[in-house]
Design a protein around this nucleic acid. Sequence first.
DNA 1: CATCCACAGGAAGATCTGGTAG
DNA 2: CTACCAGATCTTCCTGTGGATG
Length: 407
Amino acid sequence: MSSKPLDNIFERYISAPTLFKDREVLRPTYIPERLPHREEQMEKIGSILATCLKGGTPSNIFCYGKTGTGKTAVVKYVLKHLVDKTRELKIKEPIVSYINCAIVDTNYRVLSQLCEILGEKLPLTGLPTDEVFNKFVSKLDEEERLMIIVLDEVDLLLKKSGSFTLYELTRVNTMLKRARVSLVGISNDLRFKDYLDPRVLSSLSEEEIVFPPYTASELKDILRERAELGFFEGVLEPAVINLCAALAAREHGDARRALDLLRVAGELAEREGSPKVLERHVREAKKRIEADVLSDAIRALPLQSKLVLYAIYLSSRETLDASTGEIYNTYQRLCSLLNVDTLTQRRVSDLINELDMLGMINAAVISRGRYGRTRRIRLAMPKNLLRKLLYEDYRLKELRNFEKGVL
DNA sequence: CATCCACAGGAAGATCTGGTAG
DNA sequence: CTACCAGATCTTCCTGTGGATG
């Protein structure tokens, strides 16, 4: 055995027992061969889309349910098998386009994405949206074909960019001579229907499919199946699956979260050299996942938001909660210290709202009677972690020197 | 029980960036 | 170069309001 510096670590890594048979099957993007407790939804979507096997145009479908209830998995699963079937029967395949509106979240970008799938490259910006739409229609109509457009998290598109694309897409079939379009909308937000223009709604939800949250015991079934594929036999302590299921069930039956917990727990156990995944690994995984999500979000914050957060951090050392006005005053001082432009209170108020939605702070509207209406702002994360993350930004490093004297 | 504080949060539009088209 | 487009970000101006207090 040589004594090169990292040898110890490498050797230990190699000799440590491997717990994973196949890590990939535990990732949320993996689509398994079976989707337990979603048979009903699968059948329904399958029978609607099957119309295209006989040359028909399937009705538009609208799926809704909370995150991690299997909507995306079921839709992708059915589409994959549908395409396989058309190949088997040697009929013309539908063009399947999957668009995640959390990423592609403007009317323009959705349409240009659709054009790209048809082989028409478009610039990122610069063209009028309706022109892009016309381009899409004429390109699609060049041949007789069916395009199945899946709009995942479509509620985000609507909230951000309005209903232009949605509206146009629901009536695109009237403009097409040869080609046909079927829409599959997926929404996490159950109130989505309230925001939507009734004309679009009735067209989009010709068929409606509900995905209820998984119960703890359903989650257990899912985890058991995946664990069998993903881990070697006997490496999971019996209580591990139950705990993952229970923790995820508490968060509105989110299967994605349950799988993440299981995978990260496995990774932690493996790194530690433990031959088994234990309950404490799951608890540790829960903390890790939560901290990671938060940390990444904070690192990605623009400077102004970081300054607002810093102001909240400072006030949290003095008192439990602060008002918008107090935070704004502190924020202004920080800006002048760093020689940064100061935003208006209106804007800062919006930034505070965003920080609240990201879960870094709690900001509830309260009334203090005679003393006005404001937000009660509290830090919702460990001060030390926040401090560390904020100082990662070199632009804030200077504030270190002022930290004690500022307030 | 009317008043009035300290904001919330909607609406509209200005400014800037990064693009096309001619 | 000009004219135009979309989107992000921010400002200006505004109306609305829960409830302690006088």
